[in-house]
Design a protein around this nucleic acid. Sequence first.
DNA 1: GCCGTCACTGTTAGCGTTAACAACATTGGT
DNA 2: ACCAATGTTGTTAACGCTAACAGTGACGGC
Lengths: 335, 335
Amino acid sequence: MAVHGPAMTDVARLAGVSHQTVSRVLNGHPNVREQTRLRVRAAIAELGYRPNGAARALVTGRSQVIGVVAQNTTLYGPASLLAALEQTAAEEGFAVSVGSVRNLDHRSISAAVERHLSHRVAGIVVIAPVESAGEALERLPQDVPLVTVDGDPSRPVPLVTVDQVAGARAATQHLLDAGHRTVWHVSGPSDWFDSVGRIDGWREALLAAGTDPPPLMPGDWSAASGYRCGQMLARMPEVTAVFTANDHLALGVLRALHEFGRRVPDDISVVGFDDVPEAAYFIPPLTTVRPDFDAVARASLQMLLAQIESGTGGALRQSVAPTLVSRDSVAPPRR
Amino acid sequence: MAVHGPAMTDVARLAGVSHQTVSRVLNGHPNVREQTRLRVRAAIAELGYRPNGAARALVTGRSQVIGVVAQNTTLYGPASLLAALEQTAAEEGFAVSVGSVRNLDHRSISAAVERHLSHRVAGIVVIAPVESAGEALERLPQDVPLVTVDGDPSRPVPLVTVDQVAGARAATQHLLDAGHRTVWHVSGPSDWFDSVGRIDGWREALLAAGTDPPPLMPGDWSAASGYRCGQMLARMPEVTAVFTANDHLALGVLRALHEFGRRVPDDISVVGFDDVPEAAYFIPPLTTVRPDFDAVARASLQMLLAQIESGTGGALRQSVAPTLVSRDSVAPPRR
DNA sequence: GCCGTCACTGTTAGCGTTAACAACATTGGT
DNA sequence: ACCAATGTTGTTAACGCTAACAGTGACGGC
């Protein structure tokens, strides 16, 4: 198998030039006569020549590949992010190598990063939504271009995030504006920065409105945990508005409320987070907060590319604001 | 940036051997004295040496990377598959490079494959659920290890699939067994093999039971299209059982039925396909068919690895049977 | 007409690894 | 003690590419 394809010298021979000239054409160097360039192009096409990335990576010291470390790429958020990242990278001529990880502990993350390093990736994007990921990053070689997404805001690492706080504040405010006296919150797991950001935003909005935040209902992103929290919420007659940390939690809550005969939005209003494609078809259609994954992907890749090109490891940060998508799960409280 | 790490010669010097001996240790060759092996290992650890994948790929002609071509990795199925593939590959010491694709037409797929080829991946997995993908594969270099997932059963390419027909038959039979006279079907897009397999299975089960299949309701995987079909279904009093080609379609149907006051499962039973994690929290909890993505990933990787190692491009095929997950959305018809 | 400058092209070396072969040391059979 | 077989190590030459440098010819200013 694998009769190796033609190499640069083969193209050069056919075009009647040196392999270096072929290289120059390929890399868009100036100072190649138009006529020569055309001959080389023709030879490339005729032979079906394809440059060898490995050889190029060897001599330049880095490949046209960026590594992505992520956990649980089955969830809607991470999956969208990954897809957007890949798309953007492809436009810049980069391939994306995924190193997904079962757990976000020290060792798993380090191992994934190591794997990427030994493939000499040009840079690494870590989707690092929990505390322990940040620790793993500390002990990394300093000279690798690196960007974290949704990571620890308190660490001096280049960071791109969805503005969780703003999103949560908007969701909460939306419920307050509808006339609700207070808003309950079903949160994500407490070790995720996404969760704490959303909790903070919720709390801020409430405090700003002069209300004391009710007790937190801790969930774990899953519909199952949303359901459990929903069962408790349904039993409390004073609850009229709930903000859940993601749409799947909302789905679980919706189902629990339904079972207890509490109507949404007539009895209780619900707002989610993520805007999964099917949120518009929940019963009822879910008002939710939509993060712009494309923008996050673009920003992180840009940041990474800047590092790769400049060689500087600046510690920038950027956050992109999500937008509220209003549907039918919110109404004024009955009095 | 990027002070290049130590190379093999540095390790060799420290251990007092030749670089070739280091290479032998790294690749687990026999005929290295135990004592030497230990010295080399120590030197590797001390320097934090990491082999250079690019150099290795250059000299061996292939990298430890497998390329995956997929579309729409945001959907639950593809995302799960990708994650499972990555996991399995990592266990075998391979990295996974994704080349996701907006459209599954000729050119996009070819371009993605080309990209992988120029990175000299060891093999390629194409998640190719539509006709046009198969065509793109025809004109590929013959010498690249390749496996398709959920691709065209009629093409002579190594293929691993979820057994769509069996899954659909099971779902339909389940409804028939509950006492329904016939079963309606909301399908996926007609150019997906997944769809046609599920349609076939549905039709087969009906025919085997001696019933004429009712007209097909064509959808496109989205909850939105499920909703539209559901609106029609809800208006037809004779409909008592619906099998949808995936869970999101089912969600749309559920919502439409709900709006029309038709209760599930009392008035109409519904069965989905995929078992997305939140299916258990639909209203009502959805009976559905669960494909084993891990098994598919394992099988395809195994097949690919076999090709890589043997150099043979055999045209095997393998299909893994899904299982029915019974929940609350199915009941006997009212009479 | 001479020389520096510019545009273009070729030559050479080396990136870090593996494979092929050569060399040496050790062992065992005669 | 000698020779072959075996185990262990070193030497050399690629792999396909880019970077640095070295030509070559044409052109214009003096």
